[in-house]
């Protein structure tokens, strides 16, 4: 995959993997390895210069037209002129008849989602009036509001403090347990990736390529204490080493020279 612009940059190279329906896959890699680019290619927002992506037998743009995707960005991207409830209802308003989730009462459905993400009582607040963590919950509820089969999450909790992030991780798993949509979760936190996912895809620095696809052996439902288990630490350490070695080899300034 190459990016347009002044000097074409090869962002991704040799990225190939399959994801099952209903699987939770985390993608980790150093910054600038093309994680976000990969999500955008899958969502049909960017065209790859080479290679192909198939989403449930469709091309990304076909899948996008069929409203297969929910997208959660790094920042909440809420519309400040809409209240919390209005933001969650936005997809339904835009999709109209194309909304794949045929609910009789969209507003009731939206209120239920807000309850699920712990925002009951905040429906009539404006985004400006709630915290960053709460805003990101609204963004999550919005992405879930129209029954998309595939949830693409681009470092959604990267800007939040640790405690808020832990909270949201648990809540995400709870909500996901109900919907069981396919999730692609981009993060630069290995711990978050392992805690959340069924499989972790580790990408190398630019041009990003798949270094390793690790199965996460923990059952569900999970709680935060699994992070203290030795096998969790072992997997975490193993993947961290993989990332650090490669970052050093690529001469990435992030790792100090010997």
């Amino acid at each position: 995959m190459r990016f347009g612009g002044h000097e074409p940059i090869t962002a991704l190279e040799d990225v190939s993997f399959d994801i099952d329906d209903g699987e939770f896959v985390a993608i980790v890699g150093p910054s600038g390895c093309g994680k976000s680019t990969l999500l955008r290619i899958i969502a049909g927002l960017l065209e790859p210069t080479a290679g192909s992506v198939t989403v449930r037998g469709k091309t990304p743009s076909e899948a996008r037209r069929d409203v297969e995707f929910g997208f959660v960005f790094q920042s909440p991207v809420l519309f400040p002129w809409l209240r919390v409830l209005g933001n969650v209802l936005l997809p339904d308003r835009i999709l109209g008849k194309r909304n794949p989730l045929a609910v009789a009462d969209a507003e009731r459905h939206a209120r239920g989602l807000l309850r699920d993400v712990g925002l009951e009582g905040f429906e009539e607040y404006y985004p400006e009036q709630i915290s960053g963590g709460m805003q990101q919950r609204v963004a999550l509820a919005r992405a879930l509001s129209y029954g998309a089969s595939t949830l693409l999450m681009d470092e959604p909790f990267g800007a939040l403090d640790e405690f808020t992030r832990d909270n949201l991780n648990i809540q995400l798993l709870e909500v996901w347990q109900q919907t069981r949509s396919t999730v692609l979760f981009v993060t630069h936190s290995l711990q978050e990736a392992i805690f959340l996912s069924d499989r972790v895809v580790v990408l190398s620095p630019r041009p990003g390529s798949v270094m390793r696809i690790a199965d996460v052996p923990f059952g569900r439902p999970r709680d935060l204490t699994i992070r203290y288990r030795p096998d969790f630490a072992a997997l975490n350490g193993e993947l961290r080493e993989l990332l650090q070695i490669d970052a050093g080899a690529a001469g990435d300034g992030e790792v100090a020279p010997p």
Binding site: L45, R64, F71, F73, Q74, V77, I94, L95, R98
Partner: peptide, 11 residues
Amino acid sequence: QAVELMSVLSA
């Protein structure tokens, strides 16, 4: 990103 959000919804 707001534009991308609208694209994801094929607005």
